[in-house]
Design a protein around this nucleic acid. Structure first.
Lengths: 182, 182
DNA sequence: ACCTGAACACCGTTCAAGT
DNA sequence: ACCTGAACACCGTTCAAGT
């Protein structure tokens, strides 16, 4: 039949993410994505490499949806906003979010988020030699928390909100500790 | 040929876990597990329900491998031991460990670990009204950390050890905070 | 009760071919 | 350059049958 459908990588990832949201990650396949786009499975291979790359693309997409806070905000608010943005994405794409933990990414998108956290911590007065460790520990917690929500480990959303707010307060205490000397 | 091979659920889960460790989670299937046991795939269905139940069984198995610390130990040491036990299991079964986050379990095995954490926190003097929240936050961090290690997000093991030890110290500070009043 | 053979409806992927 | 048809080597699962 027709050639030249004008298929693009972005279009394919959109379809894959939509399927993941609707039917779960196990519903995402070369065949199902192709069908949603009205195309044969083989057409996808030119645009995304194979199924593994397609899933990597999904990670990239999810990371890009994490909204970075405006640089003008006070650092503590920036941290809160980052956490909140992470949780928002986790709840919007609960299935695809799991991929973040399964496939550790070092893409530009991932680095951008990391830098935002490091900068906020530095602006809060965390001494430079403890900065990267603080970022790792904080990001690990936030990632674990968001993943837990995505997987339904925290079924009560109101309580999850309160838990997260409390965790942010605890982090302030620790930052204060780091700031005034180990 | 022969009937009555004496197949058991435990034997099947052992084989599945071994395959996960060797070939990754994607290598675990009804057919591969059956082959490793010298049996046809159909023979498994009587003992584990289907593939989903097989994976649930794997979670159960992984949780059971988390060694609970002796009750005689001081509570702070118990907490450290629990964290260390979790990380040990995560590194022993990096692939299967990911299932812990993907399939939230409320099995007896999961509750046993949870209770050990709660008891240790209570013994440390965390007031009762903050106990379950403290457990949730602490477990979330520990789970996220262990999962990160399992997925290769922390490639430097020595640094991961130092990070984790540091995190435990921070937790002590927070516990002290909770103990002496909000 | 426990296991098998054959069969069904699926996968991801390759490769030659069409436009 | 971009897409398709046919084909290959896989999946999980059911169901009737064997012992």
């Amino acid at each position: 039949m027709a050639a030249r459908r004008g298929l693009s990588r972005d279009e394919i990832l959109d379809a894959a993410l939509a399927i993941a949201d609707a039917d779960g990650l196990s519903g995402v396949g070369m065949r199902s994505v192709a069908q949603q786009l009205g195309v044969t499975p083989m057409a996808l291979y030119r645009h995304v490499g194979d199924k593994g790359s397609l899933l990597d693309g999904l990670v990239e997409r999810v990371l890009r949806e994490i909204e970075l806070p405006p640089a003008g905000l006070p650092p503590a608010d920036r941290l809160r906003a980052l956490g909140s943005a992470l949780r928002t994405v986790a709840r919007r794409h609960p299935q695809a979010f799991g991929l973040l933990l399964a496939r550790s990414a070092v893409t530009p998108e991932a680095l951008q988020v990391r830098d935002a956290v490091v900068t906020a911590l530095a602006d809060l007065g965390v001494p430079e030699e403890g900065l990267s460790r603080a970022e790792r520990l904080l990001s690990t917690f936030a990632l674990g928390f968001a993943a837990s929500e995505a997987n339904g480990r925290f079924p009560d959303q109101t309580r999850a909100d309160a838990d997260f707010a409390h965790a942010m307060d605890l982090i302030s205490i620790l930052v204060e500790h780091a700031r005034t000397g180990a």
